[in-house]
């Protein structure tokens, strides 16, 4: 039972990039996320590597995804339904259950695996100005 599937993952959903450009969710590429973060200000793209995938202990039916996030390799764990898509750098949409993602959203996915590096966002921090690029 999945009462509230976020419809932004439905194939054909229209996504607005920070540049104002509109794209279908299935047409998004790594650069779209990177450029959007660059022009949005306040948001930063992080590389989050999947280091472990297992069944959630607390919430049956969900999957616990363990990530190491960003340059600091911070450990973050999130529980998601197996059909939840993540965007893997250089690969595209990926989920723990591409079959369920296809059923529920119509979105073609790769199989998310340990070692995959996912696009995530975080708040831009002023601590390390080396990331700033003036055009």
């Amino acid at each position: 039972p999945a009462p509230s599937n976020p419809s932004h993952f439905m194939k054909g959903a229209i996504i607005q990039l920070a540049t104002g450009e509109l794209k279908r969710v299935e047409d998004l590429q790594t650069q779209d996320f990177v450029r959007s973060a660059e022009v949005s200000g306040g948001l930063k793209i992080d590389s989050s590597m999947v280091v472990d995938i297992r069944a959630s202990q607390q919430r049956p039916g969900l999957v616990s995804l363990h990530f190491t996030v960003g340059e600091q390799q911070s450990k973050v764990t999130i529980d998601v339904p197996p059909e939840h898509p993540f965007f893997v750098f250089g690969q595209g949409w990926s989920s723990c259950s591409p079959e369920r993602t296809a059923q529920l959203y119509g979105l073609a996915c790769h199989h998310l695996q340990v070692g995959d590096v996912c696009v995530s966002i975080t708040l831009q921090q002023q601590m390390q100005p080396q990331q700033h690029k003036q055009p």
Binding site: P6, S7, H8, F9, A13, I14, I15, Q16, L17, A18, L22, V25, L28, D32, F33, S36, S40, L43, D46, S48, F67, V69, G70, Q72, S74, K75, V76, I78, P85, F86, F87, C118, V119, S120, I121, T122, L123
Partner: peptide
């Protein structure tokens, strides 16, 4: 037709900093 912002598609993973 609804339009969704790009950042709704990717997880917000805030590094957990203890300090």
């Amino acid at each position: 037709v609804p339009v969704f912002p790009w950042h709704s598609l990717v997880p917000f993973l805030a590094p957990t900093q203890s300090d």
